[in-house]
């Protein structure tokens, strides 16, 4: 499993807001065990999609000079019954940041209906590779030609 849990960035305001999409496909390996008789996309991976996408607002806000790891989560609502064929719209918003860490929130919509939200996300900053390496990762992860 490639642990890249968003497929495209559709809107980006560095240091403020990011939007993207995640497609849920029956080809996803996680669905083999989750579950054998009914494919339900794991809620924990929906949350990971929100965390991965939202992190780039802070990374870009620090000129791609930091990497982020999750520290604290609060007030998270998740869908327990997402089926293959669904396209998630993900929105992440940076609420505050300093050299040591960042605070954000995020949500997901399906066809305009909110299906998931993360009220408070705290990331810790850790040393990153060279900024050019981080920019290249973002370009690749975000589906930018």
């Amino acid at each position: 499993m490639r642990f890249l849990l968003f497929d495209r960035v559709t809107h980006f305001e560095p240091g403020r807001r990011i939007e993207g999409v995640k497609c849920i496909t029956l080809a996803d390996e996680a669905l083999k065990e989750h579950f054998p008789r009914r494919a339900l996309y794991p809620a924990s991976l929906v949350l990971e999609s929100m965390l991965q996408l939202t992190a780039w607002t802070a990374i870009a806000g620090h000129n791609y000079g930091v990497s982020l790891v999750l520290s604290v989560l609060e007030d998270v609502a998740l869908p327990a019954d997402l089926a293959p064929g669904t396209t998630l719209k993900i929105v992440g918003e940076l609420r505050g940041t300093n050299p040591k860490g960042s605070m954000a929130s995020a949500y997901c919509e399906v066809d305009g209906v909110r299906v998931a939200s993360a009220g408070r996300i705290l990331y810790a900053h850790v040393p990153a590779p060279e900024p050019d390496v981080m920019r290249e990762r973002f370009r690749y992860y975000g589906g930018t030609p």
Binding site: A43, V69, L70, S71, V72, D75, V76, L78, P79, A80
Partner: peptide, 10 residues
């Protein structure tokens, strides 16, 4: 099936 995280601290 998980559908709500009250809090998580790592």
């Amino acid at each position: 099936l998980l559908d709500h995280v009250r809090s998580a601290r790592y």
